[in-house]
Design a protein around this nucleic acid. Structure first.
Lengths: 137, 137
DNA sequence: CTTGACCTTCCCATGATGGGAGGCCTGAGG
DNA sequence: CCTCAGGCCTCCCATCATGGGAAGGTCAAG
């Protein structure tokens, strides 16, 4: 299996497969006589693992840890759980931040006539951070 | 007011002030004889505006638009509102994505014993995306 | 043997931010 | 007037994960 086939089989782009090798997230692929990388089931599974980890929002650093725990048959599940829980806390914090932004903006937008007139509580707020309005829509 | 004072007054780092100038988000600052940038109230207000916009999660491109609307006394509030609403939709989408990640991980973590044993539904899921478990904690 | 699809490496860009080097300037104390 | 600290200048590099593209070698089907 060359890199293109591995890419299709794992859902990871060839570019990224090479990158993961470069940053030593995965072992260097073996090469054919023509210097083509070759992949077997084991590598495909690792690439799928990485892809799935990314889709859960883990950073490369976290995935590196998860991957090494996954490879270790004697890992304590405690360590995996710790990484996951830390990531959940991080996600929750970022969600809360974005939620606060969205709520503020929703409120301001509600107060904005959104017509041809120049008065705009949204701009007023960004300019002065007053966070309220008299003219609810 | 030189760049350090402007930085303190606006809460934007000197590095960033120079960067905003470079990407033409703000007009080039006037210079003293010694080539030092100088800032007046108007510029400080723009920097504050930018900072506030960033804290609401707007991208530089969006802030550029907002800033130009802010400078234009005849802007139609419609345009400001459109930018804000698009941004809120974007935030909501990202929040939903992260919420889904967090929910999945919370579920998996709940199923994980988190002790010294190697069995781990979190790793099992990342490896196979099965998304369920028999052993709820 | 030709052609097209695929592989290789290397470089560049993103977006917003920070770090740091090397060099000039300014202001306050001596 | 001189000196020294701290501030300013520009320029380069790094981040994180990803993609784009160029130049050149390779493989398989016709």
């Amino acid at each position: 299996m060359n890199i293109g086939q591995a890419s299709r089989a794992s859902g990871v782009s060839a570019k990224m497969i090479r990158y993961y090798e470069e940053i030593e997230l995965v072992r260097p692929a073996s090469r054919t006589g023509a210097n083509y990388r070759e992949y077997a089931a084991r590598e495909i599974n690792e690439l799928r693992f990485i892809k799935r980890g990314r889709s859960l929002g883990f950073s490369m650093a976290e995935i590196a840890q998860l991957l090494s725990l996954w490879r270790d048959r004697d890992r304590p599940s405690r360590e995996v759980k710790a990484i996951a829980d830390r990531h959940v806390a991080d996600l929750d914090a970022r969600i809360a931040g974005m939620q606060a932004m969205a709520d503020t903006l929703r409120h301001l937008s509600q107060c904005c006539a959104g017509d041809g007139r120049p008065e705009c509580p949204i701009l007023a707020d960004i300019a002065e951070a007053s966070r309220s309005c008299d003219r609810p829509a």
